[in-house]
Design a protein around this nucleic acid. Structure first.
Lengths: 241, 241
DNA sequence: CAGTTGAATTGACATTTGTCAATAATATTT
DNA sequence: AAATATTATTGACAAATGTCAATTCAACTG
């Protein structure tokens, strides 16, 4: 199957692939929808595949759609002045991306870019509004999602402002291992620059910390493949700052 | 009138002081409530006055209530390891504080402390849940509020990670002038340490930048009183990083 | 009012982090 | 495989920021 490009309508979705996709898991904010609501949600959605490196959502564009990631890995980037970038977090499987400005200014406050090939659905924001209006459990779920992101960002903010680089790198490694890849030698698919952009430091500094960890026997590194050998140590370093 | 201390039930609220308070302004998330809903919300609330310096909400305690600030100024603090603090933002007049963990873990993710004397109301979280369930416009407003805080924190994160100290101090001064005090010579009521804690830098560094700005004629400083003389310059410094 | 306390300021210096340039490694193209 | 790009690594150095200690200033206490 060849990777397809932008904006192919999800014709094959007659099999309700999305409905099923949106169904599974307890974490799923769509699990509270009735079949009718799910049908409505899915009806006019657009199923799109992005190749690695492609931009899924662009910061500062208007936000008329919500995106659900069905497969693949993407990075959320806050673009600052000049060329500075901060990667806020990675998103995988069933993540929902509202662009940050939904309900307010309808502007996207960050860019989302595919790390691997990403299969996702574009859903009209109107549908989300409609669901919030008609299904209070859904509103609840959305609030929950929002708050989770808020807390994650708060922790990020505190970590980045209060920890030295080794602590931040530890946090990143633990995050990748335990929250994103869920396996131990894990293949980040990310360049050193991108990893550095997740910690708010320069690539060179990041590489140096990584090297220290490597020579201390805390991790093993082979290219983009990282193996955490001593998680305790990482946690210690994370705590110590 | 003597300042009163914790947890005085709002008996004098027979005059519906809060209903009125919660009524005014378009920004108010309660403006969409019916009279009945407002009565319900206000009925068992507790009206509390905190003196300057007192802790209104404490991080890591359980979050059974939402707090509405009716009068005064408070600071929102993320407490990190050791003694490090990061002041996330200031809240005044009609702010609603959910503690960050509402709908999720019911834990407060930050501390709120009174800067001036603060008059506020404690409302049972259950009531908020009830309103979200029954009034979709309210759910909407709450989502909006959440997203606003999210965006603000995002901007904060980007600023703190990507700007040098002069840029961060500029941002702080503009924030205080244009979003909190809304007047030009403004009296921060905050110590140098607190101002520094809003920018993620040490007090000494903060003082040095302030001194530079002062000797450049960009601001005039007299104790906690700050006068922005050249806002253009601040904006320039903010942009330049 | 003298004495005491805590905050604000300053200076000297150490540490952390970033910058720039060179080199090595890896991937991509021809 | 050679040539070319891109990415990763390293080193030397500069700049930004933090730390510590001394001093000044302002507010409060008795």
């Amino acid at each position: 199957m060849e990777p397809r490009r932008l904006e192919e309508a999800c014709i094959k979705c007659k099999d309700r692939c999305c409905a099923r996709c949106f169904d599974d898991g307890d974490e799923n904010i769509f699990s509270c929808l009735t079949t009718d609501e799910l049908e409505m949600l899915v009806k006019e959605k657009r199923h799109v595949v992005f190749n690695a490196g492609e931009t899924i959502l662009k910061q500062n564009t208007s936000a008329s759609h919500v995106v659900c990631i069905k497969r693949g890995l993407a990075k959320i980037i806050a673009e600052g002045e000049s060329d500075k970038k901060l990667i806020l977090r990675l998103v995988a499987n069933h993540a929902i991306l509202t662009g940050g400005g939904i309900f307010i200014d309808e502007i996207r406050h960050f860019t989302v870019q595919a790390v691997t090939q990403v299969e996702c659905c574009f859903i009209d924001s109107e549908k989300i509004y409609e669901l919030v209006s008609n299904n209070s459990r859904f509103a609840f779920e959305l609030l929950k999602l929002n708050n989770q992101q808020n807390i994650q960002m708060l922790n990020n903010l505190v970590g980045i402002t209060q920890k030295y680089m080794p602590g931040r790198v530890s946090d990143l490694l633990l995050y990748l291992k335990n929250e994103i890849f869920l396996s131990n030698p894990f293949d980040t698919r990310l360049s050193r620059q991108e990893l550095a952009d997740m910690t708010g430091m320069t690539m060179e500094s990041f590489i140096r910390i990584l090297k220290e960890f490597k020579s201390s026997g805390i991790i093993a590194v082979d290219g983009a493949n990282i193996h955490v050998l001593d998680e305790e140590a990482l946690q210690m370093i994370s705590r110590k700052g």
